[in-house]
Design a protein around this nucleic acid. Structure first.
Lengths: 169, 169
DNA sequence: AAAGATTGAAAGATCAATCTTG
DNA sequence: CAAGATTGATCTTTCAATCTTT
């Protein structure tokens, strides 16, 4: 049951990982991407956890709110920007609320939606955490790339997320 | 406490997400990357879960073993290739073992290491699952990229993971 | 004691209901 | 009933010991 060794199999390099029905270039690219997707969030989580007791996801919630006009955003909109399920966001919002970093307000009078509002304490937390976080992003990612690579990465990432969203064909 | 609006701040576009102390290009690239890292594993997990009752991580374990000479790999080596903690791998191995897809063998006689071995049933499971998985990888990622982008993605991803590993400077 | 590996408890994510309001 | 949101149960991951063998 070993690998189907056809006549052409001169030497399969002992480089494992990734299915073999991809070309060598495709394998390399896929391996690089999947390892990045595996490690980067883990590294950011670890660092943010130590520095501020926040996960990357929690930090993004707070940072996002801090940039809004009234430090406010509807739950559904927030979930959509963060590419998160409403369920996940709701659990996270509860935790952040218990820590006093966020407050939730039921439909302000008009609609039936819930708004998440960043508290003053939450704002302070973002201010304290942001510089170190940006440093990490630079250190892990941005500083290592040329300007051309930066641009390439942006368009590649946008293409992939569009495809996942179904805006592909 | 609003955004530090220096004299140069003509109009901050209402595009949220990501710290503002990055340049516009950096923001765009970082946003694209972080969303990809957030969504891609989730999409693969979802699809593999439905198709084969496996997480992406579990699939990678099985696929990796299926490519080894004796369908065997030491736990530590496996963890290193997968960029996983030994703890995580051990939990996953236990689950896969309970499903009969993997078997663990204590040091074959010499060393003190444990080997994970893919069972016949595990091999069948990989064979059944692999084609659909590769299709997903193509659909979400590879098909959307030009040859040049593929190459760029590989070297960008390698650079980033090297930096996370500390092989940066 | 150090490397290899496992374990149990706690934290987080996902899934399938459920609740609420228009 | 449908959209917006929440909840509880379950599964997975992480973290901090612990165990074993050299």
């Amino acid at each position: 049951m070993a690998v189907k060794r056809a006549k052409a199999a001169a030497k399969t390099p002992p480089d494992p990982v990734a299915p073999r029905w991809l070309t060598a270039e495709e394998r390399r690219a896929w391996l690089a991407l999947s390892r990045t997707a595996l490690r980067l969030p883990a590294a950011l989580d670890r660092d943010l956890q130590r520095a501020a007791g926040l996960t990357f996801f929690e930090y993004m919630v707070l940072a996002l709110l801090s940039e809004q006009p009234g430090r406010t955003l509807g739950m559904t909109e927030l979930a959509s920007i963060l590419a998160s399920s409403l369920s996940r966001l709701s659990h996270v919002a509860r935790r952040l609320e218990m820590q006093g970093l966020v407050r939730r307000e039921k439909g302000p009078g008009v609609g039936r939606s819930t708004n998440a509002v960043l508290t003053d304490e939450g704002y302070r937390r973002v201010e304290q955490t942001a510089p170190a976080h940006v440093e990490q992003v630079r250190h892990y990612v941005l500083d290592g790339l040329s300007k051309a690579e930066l641009t390439a990465m942006a368009s590649i990432g946008e293409r992939i997320t569009a495809r996942i969203d179904g805006n592909s064909v």
